[in-house]
């Protein structure tokens, strides 16, 4: 049973005179990774904020996990979790306290145990009792995502989860996202990096000029556009590959990060 957990129809939103979303339609299947691709200022963040009940759309209908946004904010908020573009963490608290705080706000039975479990799962036991202010960008992102997983929400919104991260941290985030999806969580992410969408998503929507101009699986999108040509090119290692080789951690085998 693959019912669509997110149903968006005709969503419009303007800021003053600027119409950012001009009738956005799309549906997201349960359990997959859905990427909303678009350039800077295309309205990706606006779309995510509308779905996360932070902004009100001017028109259109939004149903998430069976809850209509017009009637039931609470139901939607209970089903989703938002990881914004900038790590929204309390820097004065420790990583553990941040997770505990979210667990308490989600009214879970045992916030301390929830925090302990997530800290272990994210391989952060050493850093957990230090203040978040001392963390690196990648660690902040990890804690940020860990906070979003508290209470096992059905849908996770990740707004440009890897923007501003170094290549190593970006691979970590990708790995986390893949694991989440294989555990059954629906992941909705925005990105401006084509490679990211290509790596992660099983459905890709392209937001351009205020509308979704393409929505399909990567394979079918590839078929739609210029046919594959065969060229012979000497493949030089990218700087990213060089960087990762030198520091001894090649994609996917990041040791000690995750289980």
């Amino acid at each position: 049973m693959n019912k669509n957990i997110i149903q968006i129809k005709g969503v419009k939103k303007s800021y003053k005179d600027v119409e950012v979303l001009k009738g956005v339609d799309f549906e997201v299947e349960q359990g997959g990774i859905f990427a909303l691709l678009g350039s800077n200022g295309a309205g990706k963040t606006t779309m995510i904020k509308i779905m996360a009940t932070l902004l009100k759309a001017d028109a259109g209908s939004i149903v998430i996990n069976g809850f209509d946004i017009e009637k039931n904010h609470g139901g939607i908020r209970g089903s989703i979790s938002l990881t914004g573009q900038f790590a929204a963490i309390d820097e004065i608290l420790t990583g553990r306290e941040n997770i505990q705080m979210i667990a308490k706000l989600r009214h879970l039975e045992n916030p301390n145990a929830v925090a302990e479990e997530l800290i272990n799962r994210f391989g952060m036991s050493e850093a957990a009792d230090r203040r978040v202010g001392t963390y690196s960008g990648g660690m902040k992102r990890r804690i940020d995502i860990a906070m979003s997983l508290v209470g096992n929400p059905k849908i996770i919104f990740l707004d440009e989860p890897t923007t501003g991260l170094d290549p190593e941290a970006r691979l970590e985030v990708w790995k986390i996202v893949k694991e989440l999806s294989s555990a059954g969580t629906t992941v909705f992410l925005t990105t401006q990096h084509l490679e990211e969408a290509e790596q992660l998503a099983n459905k890709i929507a392209i937001l351009h000029g205020g509308k979704i101009i393409a929505l399909d699986t990567l394979e079918r999108l590839k078929k739609l556009f210029p046919p594959a040509k065969i060229e012979y090119v000497e493949k030089q290692p990218t700087l990213e590959e060089i960087f990762l080789t030198i520091i001894g951690k090649k994609g996917g085998e990041i040791n000690g990060i995750y289980k």
């Binding site: 996360a52 908020r77 573009q85 820097e91």
Partner: peptide
């Protein structure tokens, strides 16, 4: 500014 308000507001509290 840090987005913590947004995180709280997207939660059922």
């Amino acid at each position: 500014q840090r987005g913590i308000l947004e995180r709280f507001h997207s939660m059922p509290i």
